[in-house]
Design a protein around this nucleic acid. Sequence first.
DNA 1: CTGTTAGCGCTTTCAC
DNA 2: GTGAAAGCGCTAACAG
Lengths: 350, 350
Amino acid sequence: MTVTLADVAARAQVSPATVSRVLNGNYPVAASTRERVLRAVDDLDYVLNGPASALAAATSDLVGILVNDIADPFFGIMAGAIQSEIGGPGGRAGGERLAVVCNTGGSPERELTYLTLLQRQRAAAVVLTGGAVENTAHATAVATKLRKLGEAGTRVVLCGRPPAPADTDAVALTFDNRGGGRELTEHLIGLGHRRMGYIAGPEERTTTRHRLEGHRDALTAHGIADEPARTVHGRYDRRAGYEATIELLRREPDLTAVVAANDTVALGACAALRDSGLRIPDDVSVAGFDDLPFSIDAVPALTTVRLPLADAGARAGRIAMGREEVPPGGIATIRGELMVRGSTGVPKGA
Amino acid sequence: MTVTLADVAARAQVSPATVSRVLNGNYPVAASTRERVLRAVDDLDYVLNGPASALAAATSDLVGILVNDIADPFFGIMAGAIQSEIGGPGGRAGGERLAVVCNTGGSPERELTYLTLLQRQRAAAVVLTGGAVENTAHATAVATKLRKLGEAGTRVVLCGRPPAPADTDAVALTFDNRGGGRELTEHLIGLGHRRMGYIAGPEERTTTRHRLEGHRDALTAHGIADEPARTVHGRYDRRAGYEATIELLRREPDLTAVVAANDTVALGACAALRDSGLRIPDDVSVAGFDDLPFSIDAVPALTTVRLPLADAGARAGRIAMGREEVPPGGIATIRGELMVRGSTGVPKGA
DNA sequence: CTGTTAGCGCTTTCAC
DNA sequence: GTGAAAGCGCTAACAG
């Protein structure tokens, strides 16, 4: 019924082995023979059986990409960039590798489940994107999994995620969230702000913690008290930003600035401020993080920290494919760039 | 070296077949035996070999999702929704299926290549999202591929894409782009607009054509001449929207409204108008399409046509898994909903 | 309910 | 440069 390698071999009058060699192109085959095989493939409309190849060769053309939420451009951009680098020559059969995108939704269990599933698929590589959940048990479990993946020959790359234990052999491209957070708040302090609200992401997330620490570093460095009431935690979405801002305003109506954990949250904050009759930045300044594409179109345009998501993803993809040198120590820190735009200004009283 | 099913069987003192049955859970196995097997699996830290299973069972746990650009929320939202429905019970081994996301970048060749790659993987299902390229040769090639996939047992679903030839057996969930386009322009006409610019997407795309046709339908229905100079084609991105708007304004400075092919383009249009010193909607109204999450945060909020991307994706996912009834005739048309917001208003002179 | 027996379709030494 | 043969690790009849 379905055409197999043997059928092609028969029609081309060669052995199955030769067909395999032609198809994988990693072996010397006489030009005339190759011709004949290729024609037979075409005539029979033959398509290689991926699972069979993978089984026999003990490798697959799949690359796993773990993301929190593929609908979020933060992850979409990285995933797209990774994808764009995993194709091309270097692998088996045509050199095309497929990206298996796994939405963890930020759930540790799903993360582990997907890692196992990718292990089961004998994935050629796995890229974990975005912050990690901070939980010793989970971190240990992930590290163990990564170690096993590595042992099985799966290359592991962390993109926008803190390094894993060194013995996991996972390469890490880490965002300097702390540094970015500090710089952002320093910009605000420089403008004269002293009463700033901070909308943090979900607790138990490295990204959340690092950005918040950066914010606090800046406060401390400038002798500004870190009032606990000025920090609110929430999800990384617009709604959370909206609600957190209302709450922050309720607690302290004369806040002069709101720093959000990311751009999406900042957009929600902007909406809340507008709905509260406050002008940005005249009454309250707003800042985000990430510099997602839409941030420049906010009105006023959002001051934020640009993360080179596409570059980082592309680099992670190349490293995953062994096409780029691993950074020294397996760790590279990627800095963000402060983008000062219209949403931040001198505070009202100043 | 690597532990296999046989190792587990040996340790659990059962036959390999039994282990397989326990792991796949589609077969009656005595509770005590299952216990023993599961313990052995745990002890040995065994992970099933996906390719081997797929080969033996002639099916795989992979579901392909073709998108133009995963970094674009339009596709990200659909992909995420599809993903969320393909897991769970119903399939093999744990019931988890993996989503293989393929970025075609709108290229017909890549689309075909990915389809072949998915065929090679013996994907359980394939979902093609977004508009199709309008090109007879390519359409034929795709139809042929879809037919082959179908014959090989891969379920094919089109999500947000026009139906394929009936003999492909592909289920289509189609967006009513034409109807949405018409409704949007009728809203503008109702407000009093007569000189409207239209920023269309790339030519040779069904989405582009249908939305534009809807726009023209509305013009015609109201006796408004369809000036060719008022339509500009460009990519589906912000930059294209910006440039097209500048061009439109150059051609006809007293335009009272700009209709964009989608929200992203509309954002670019807004930026161009602002940079040109024009107020929205006082001087020029702007409308988009899709109602992506950020559209409500534009200032003023964008009038647009909401497409139920997540619902459509979820439904496509369920159909792909055989968990939802196929719509009559294999085709369902999904309507958009006009969202009137601040970016459109009565034209200046009125 | 469980074991036995054949392969699934391909890759890959090892010879020639 | 090409062929023969031995599996890769698992599933699925078919018995029992």
